[in-house]
Design a protein around this nucleic acid. Structure first.
Lengths: 406, 406
DNA sequence: ACACCTTGGTTTTATAAATAAACAAACTGT
DNA sequence: ACAGTTTGTTTATTTATAAAACCAAGGTGT
């Protein structure tokens, strides 16, 4: 709980409010800021002065006048600071350098093959190397590179910078943050890849204060943004929709349970549906598996189309469940499977119609940007470090009421 | 978004912090308050003076000294104000009068039979009458009765005071708040009954900042408290777990979907499981249906025990789903079916073991207090009206970032 | 051209809050 | 009795926003 407020806290808050307004509504004049924030124009002048000397903002010229002095226009300084975002997937790692407006200014992808042993060491080396490359690519700026965010495909604790499990990389119980922070001499933030996707989607669409990002690929997971905050749950593992039961007494899942959504709506299910339709030429692990199936379906191959339709229907079951339980403003779809969007989305919309209660039936369903996860990781690092931005919510950062990092 | 902070906002906030500390940690001295809040003791003195004259708190005597002046102990004034909470069920209506500590000081239950027509008028008359009784029962107090909260079994909009649908009462599209506020001349708040149950559970266990209240009875619904706030979703209808699919292509539900949780874990399912086990003597609508089944099972009637076990297993499917997706600090169980707790809880715990991911497997499962819903309704009314309490969270009231009532 | 109006932004003054420091009150133990 | 200690209040100082006066820079009408 936030405790007392004193004069300096008050000023910090107001300064953050002003900076946030400039960031989201630039170009803007001092007078407009006074109107928007409700602060006195004298106070605005003083706060703006500070922000100018700190180079968080810049004066960019004059606005139009209709019978009076021209207003001086202020803009957020996109190059005030940078953060690095790294998205770790099974086959590759994507690294982005983002500016203070969360725009990608540098990007790099390397293929990766997971070795049988020493995965942690390999990953640590790779993450260090890629982060250092990104940092080196950063242009000179007043505040430099503020931190590194990492999106990981599995269960992790944002709070502790600790990996519980990355099932498809064969990693369990790993403290990534400590060694990485030591090597990079920068704050490091790790989060679940779906959380990063959710955050990126939210930052692009701040009008959706409650949104769910569903990542469908090897597994199915979700990131939850509620009231403008990432909701991570009690132990930081909220969003495990992949292991919710949608077919009681259904197929056995690797988690021990039967009938998990993931067994009906992830990549391996598509493979199964293909087999059930007599299509045997694909192997699940092959390169561009999903894209090839889609291509065949688009060519008119009925069996592939049926498999994709079935997949879409089962994806729809879970998506409708999400809409019913969390009633979000919007649902974003990401992950490898969105390559099949033209086949999946119609099924999703049908499922929403027949499987969700009336009030949530028209929840918008969007496709997420492809590099959401890396950008989201960078965005999380930014939200946690870029003093003193409030990223559109009541309190700074991505965390709710729980203890903050460090 | 909260905008600027000025001196008076700062003082209000700090005053709220002090009052909240006294409310939750009384008896407490001024010096202790200074330590706990971080405010200067001079500031505390001044704020405490105000709270004393406003009669939100009282001086109750002296604490122990070990070599110095005895501290003056302050306590929250439980009788500073009162609110009314009304729980509307299908067969009866429970009305409570709660003090400012959310303790029940007066309670009244009336049986109700839903008429074929004019349900809205009947309800409106009944609610008015019961509320007026409760208000008349309130002792004299500095701030009087502040408001009325109403728990309704269905889909409602807290924001608009509007009922979308009360399926088991045959009511749709009804503005309750406007006429009721006019009749009572008091602020009226309506909410889903599960939300009220969740709020009551949270107020009793503020250590659980993220908790889910599952109400299992005629239907299955849930109330979500996240980061100390009721999460109501985009259109105020979050928590419809009853209509999530847990058996894809399962039994047809009244909502049009197939395989909804509610068709496997609500009261009518128990009836079905009994029939499947050859037990035909019960009728679902009869008085004390659940209690009688439990009695029979306790007497050693295997068929009844099996039916209850099956019910517990299916209840467990959904509860495990909730744990997986929302990773709450705790789950509370309420509704008519908890009369069968001795049969259901063991099954729930088994389900949590085999159906939830490791990290959430030990989520505590508690039984809710029986009158949770009425007390929760009163608590919501209190949180929204009792200036200037922050009920343990960052911002006042039960609502997140969205617009506040009035 | 120039008085006059309008709008944007700054400086000066006022006010309200918290803090710091001095002070008063009340108690314990020797 | 009195030294030392703890609690709580009063007074002075600091730091913030707000209000008002002021300055700057543009437009407009005559």
């Amino acid at each position: 709980m936030t405790k007392r407020i004193d004069a300096s806290t008050m000023r910090q808050w107001n300064k953050a409010t002003v900076l946030h307004c400039i960031r989201s509504q630039s170009p803007i004049s001092r007078i407009q800021l006074a109107e928007v924030t409700g602060l006195n124009k004298a106070t605005i002048s003083s706060l703006v002065d500070e922000l100018l000397t700190e180079q968080y903002i810049v004066e960019v010229g004059f606005g139009d006048s209709n019978g009076g002095r021209k207003p001086i226009l202020l803009e957020f300084n996109a190059n005030a600071a940078f953060t690095v975002g790294i998205d770790v997937q099974i086959s590759h790692v994507t690294t982005t350098l983002c500016n203070a407006l969360e725009q990608v200014v540098w990007e790099h992808t390397v293929d990766m093959t997971v070795p049988g042993t020493e995965v942690k060491n390999m990953l640590l080396e790779l993450l260090t190397l890629e982060a250092k490359r990104a940092i080196a690519a950063a242009p000179a700026s007043p505040h430099g590179v503020l931190g590194v965010g990492i999106a990981l495909p599995g269960m992790v604790s944002f709070e502790n910078g600790y990996v519980y499990m990355l099932p498809n990389l064969g990693v369990t119980e790993w403290d990534v943050r400590t060694p990485l922070q030591a090597r990079l001499q920068l704050p490091v933030f790790i989060d679940n890849d779906a959380n990063c996707g959710a955050w990126a989607s939210y930052r692009l669409h701040p009008e959706y204060q409650n949104l769910i990002y569903v990542s469908a690929g090897i597994g199915v997971g979700a990131g939850l943004v509620m009231e403008g905050k990432l909701y991570r749950g009690s132990r930081g593992v909220a969003g495990e929709f992949g292991h919710t039961t949608i077919v009681a007494m259904g197929i056995r899942c690797s988690c021990g349970n039967y009938g998990c959504w993931e067994r009906y709506a992830a990549q391996d299910s598509l493979y199964r549906y293909l087999l059930e339709n007599g299509v045997t030429e694909f192997s699940e692990g092959e390169r561009d598996f999903v894209a090839r199936v889609v291509q065949e379906a688009n060519r008119g191959r009925r069996e592939c189309a049926r498999a994709l339709t079935t997949l879409g229907q089962f994806l729809g079951v879970g998506v409708a469940n999400i809409a019913n339980t969390l009633n979000p403003d919007a649902i974003f779809l990401g992950g490898q499977l969105i390559q099949a969007e033209s086949w999946l989305l119609p099924q999703l919309r049908v499922a929403m119609q027949i499987k969700s209660v009336e009030a949530v039936r028209h929840t918008p369903i969007h496709l997420a940007k492809v590099d959401s996860m890396a950008v989201g990781a960078a965005g999380i690092a930014l939200s946690e470090t870029l003093y003193p931005i409030r990223m559109g919510s009541d309190t700074p950062g991505t965390v709710g009421s729980t203890l903050r990092h460090r």
